[in-house]
Each structure stands twice: as structure tokens, then as C-alpha cells.
């Protein structure tokens, strides 16, 4: 028994060491920098002034809170809408029909696509100089491409939301398809024979059955979109700015004093995501205990 345990510990040690060194080491050093520890410029004193500056100072508070609001809005909206599109897509495609494989392929196509490529694709398609704007002008729907609504680089983050929906719907779709395929249609058929109409079958049967998987996937997508940099950097505006972009700009600032604010912002983002993950684990554990 002891030998078995030792074998497990030994085989787990190398990956654990890498995770602890790279992840927690990085977080710890970042946290130190957020507290003002920067030996390169002779700062050794630890305090929370970078956090205070970011959240409450006259210079950054407005930027921070508007950025946080935009972050939450973009992450919630894109996660929710991507989940909804994927759910309806999966429900439509799960039945056998001619062309199912092609539909499946098209729906899943975005999954291996890098976020950067998707963001550039959004600019090509949805910007005021993009494909849709030109097409709309060509067929006379609008007088010139400049009249096309601002969907990319807009202050409400529509472009970012669209990019995330485009990208993450494929992730939701793959998960939902596997859940729906494994469930089969027996539950729905049973509900139908018990008198449930189409809406009731969706509301009382499909949704509760897929919800645990949909919820897990949502947490992952939300956490990712909350902390991701490249899409908001390409498709966002200068104000309001999403927090990861703001943090990176602090980090790139030639004034090394700003690095503490950048790190404080990164720690805040990490903290929010971690709270979400802990909340998710608490919910799933509570559900397991309840069952």
C-alpha cells in the first residue's frame, strides 16, 4: 500500500513541480511586483498603493471601473449567446439527415482556429470597410460603407462579443453534441408520451439534462474571455478598455513605476477568475452532496 502511494507521488511530482514553479512562481512574483517590490528601480517596500491607485485614484478609477463593467458585459453576453447558439445548433443537427456531417463540420470548424485569426476575420467581415458593409452598399441597403453600423472597435464591445460567439459556439457545440448523442431521444419521447409539447420538452427535459455540462463549459468560456488579451486588443476601443488590455499597456509603459499597477490589475483579473472557479467547484460539490 505504502509502495503504491510512493509510486503515485513520484509519478505526480515532475508535472506538479512544473505547475508550481511556472504558475504559482509567476503568480507569486507578479503579486510581489503588484505590492511595489521592484529591485530593478530600487523599490523594496511592500504596500497596496498600486491596488488603491488602480481602483480608487482620480487618474485610473474611471478607467478601471468602466473596464471592469465592459469585461463583465462582454464575458457574460458572449458566453450566454455562444451557449444559446450552440444549443440550438446542436438540437437541430443531432438528428440524422442528409448533409449532417457537413453541417457538423461547418459548426465545429472554428474550434481549431486561433482567436487572433477570428478577430482579423471579424474586421474583414463586420467593420465599416468590411465585406458586409461593402455588400450592403452595393445592393443599395445603405448609401455608403461608412453608414454601416459600428460593430467592430465599438465602445459596447459588440465586435469582441461577436468574435467570442463565433469562436466559442464551436466549443459549446462539441460538448453539447456529445451530451445529446449520449442521452439519445428516449427522455424526450417519454415526455412527449406523457403529454409534454415541444416547448415543455425543451424547458423541462432537454435544458435540465444538458445544464450541468453547459454550466461547466460556460465557466471555462467565461473565465477565458474575461482574461484574454488578443481579441479585445484588436477589436476594442481606447475607452472603455477591457482589463487585460489595460494591464498589458501598464506593463508596456516606459515608466517602470506603472508596472506595479499593471501587475495589480493582472492579479485582480486572476482573482476574479479564481473566485469564479472556486464558486463553480463549490456548486458542483454541493450538487454531488445533494445527490
Amino acid at each position: 500500500m505504502g509502495g503504491e502511494r510512493l509510486k503515485i507521488v513520484l509519478s505526480l511530482t515532475p508535472p506538479l513541480l512544473i505547475i508550481i514553479t511556472l504558475f504559482f512562481g509567476g503568480i507569486f512574483y507578479g503579486f510581489l511586483q503588484s505590492l511595489g517590490y521592484q529591485p530593478a528601480i530600487g523599490k523594496y517596500e511592500l504596500n497596496f498603493s498600486a491596488y488603491y491607485n488602480v481602483m480608487f485614484s482620480e487618474r485610473y478609477a474611471k478607467l478601471f471601473w468602466s473596464g471592469l463593467a465592459l469585461n463583465l458585459w462582454v464575458s457574460f453576453a458572449s458566453t450566454f449567446l455562444a451557449a444559446v447558439f450552440a444549443l440550438f445548433g446542436a438540437l437541430a443537427i443531432r438528428k440524422t439527415f442528409v448533409g449532417k456531417t457537413l453541417c457538423n463540420f461547418i459548426y465545429s470548424l472554428n474550434l481549431p482556429m486561433p482567436h487572433l485569426v477570428v478577430a482579423v476575420g471579424m474586421i474583414f467581415v463586420f467593420s465599416q470597410s468590411g465585406l458586409l458593409a461593402r455588400l450592403a452598399a452595393q445592393i443599395g441597403m445603405i448609401s455608403s460603407p461608412g453608414d454601416f453600423p459600428v460593430l467592430v472597435r465599438d465602445k459596447y464591445g459588440f465586435g469582441i462579443i461577436l468574435a467570442y460567439i463565433w469562436k466559442e459556439a464551436a466549443f459549446f457545440f462539441i460538448i453539447l453534441m456529445s451530451v445529446l448523442q449520449s442521452l439519445g431521444e428516449n427522455f424526450e419521447e417519454l415526455a412527449q408520451s406523457l403529454g409534454a409539447n415541444r416547448w415543455q420538452r425543451f424547458r423541462y427535459v432537454i435544458l435540465p439534462l444538458v445544464m450541468p455540462n453547459l454550466f461547466s463549459a460556460s465557466i471555462i468560456v467565461f473565465a477565458f474571455s474575461f482574461g484574454a488579451y488578443e481579441v479585445p486588443a484588436l477589436l476594442g476601443v481606447i475607452y472603455p478598455q477591457m482589463l487585460p488590455v489595460m494591464a498589458f499597456e501598464f506593463f508596456l509603459n516606459p515608466d517602470l513605476n506603472a508596472r506595479s499597477e499593471g501587475m495589480a490589475l493582472s492579479i485582480i483579473i486572476a482573482l476574479i477568475v479564481m473566485i469564479l472557479v472556486v464558486f463553480y467547484f463549490w456548486l458542483t460539490q454541493a450538487k454531488i452532496r445533494k445527490d
Binding site: 428516449n186 415526455a191 406523457l194 435540465p208 439534462l209
Partner: peptide, 26 residues
């Protein structure tokens, strides 16, 4: 016409009362 399936198919997220009352709720 109500069918009872081979593998019972009780809704796993509902308790027994909710399962039994399903048809009337609908």
C-alpha cells in the same frame, strides 16, 4: 397513449414526487 420505457427513464434531476407528477404539470 402513455409508454413506460424499458430502462424506466426517471428524470434524474427530479425527485420521485416531481417525476410522478410530470404529466399533470404538463
Amino acid at each position: 397513449v402513455v409508454m413506460v420505457f424499458q430502462n424506466y427513464l426517471l428524470f434524474p434531476y427530479m425527485n420521485v414526487n416531481e417525476n410522478v407528477g410530470f404529466a399533470l404539470k404538463m
